[in-house]
């Protein structure tokens, strides 16, 4: 058996800055994970369908546009609609502290703000999947 953790890294919405997403993608790759990177300007529907087709264990969303309270819960709902109930959803980007609680209530497991050490993202994901 050659099971790998598969993670979709996606950028929902209209902002054009994918540096953070690429840094995370690379860090997860270096941690031995298979990262599917889908590029800029993805709609929630595109992200949920890609997560389904790629059978990922986790979805990481990078968002800097300020539309996180609209887009992120919508993505979680679409994933659940497609039956992807056990897929872990986390996010990073410019997300004010006061928005973290509502996002977690909407089904996101973790929010990583600017300045997050990539190791902590890797450890977070590993921690979710190591207790099988």
């Amino acid at each position: 058996m050659d099971k790998k953790i598969r993670v979709l890294i996606a950028k929902p919405g209209l902002d054009g800055h994918d540096r953070g997403a690429k840094v995370i993608a690379r860090a997860l790759r270096d941690a031995g994970m298979e990262v599917i990177y889908t590029g800029l300007r993805q709609t929630p529907e595109m992200i949920a369908e890609a997560a389904l087709q790629e059978d990922v264990d986790a979805v990481g969303l990078s968002i800097l546009s300020g539309a996180h309270l609209t887009l992120l819960p919508r993505i979680v709902n679409l994933l659940r609609d497609k039956g992807l109930n056990d897929v872990l959803v986390f996010a990073g980007g410019i997300i004010p502290d006061e928005d973290i609680a509502p996002l977690k209530a909407a089904g996101l497991t973790a929010i990583f703000g600017p300045g997050t050490n990539t190791d902590s993202v890797v450890e977070f994901i590993r921690g979710q999947f190591q207790t099988a």
């Binding site: 790998k4 993608a25 690379r26 997860l28 790759r29 270096d30 941690a31 031995g32 994970m33 298979e34 990262v35 599917i36 990177y37 889908t38 590029g39 890609a50």
Partner: peptide
């Protein structure tokens, strides 16, 4: 690990 970017 791998970064799979063909979907872009």
């Amino acid at each position: 690990g791998a970064v799979l970017g063909d979907r872009i």
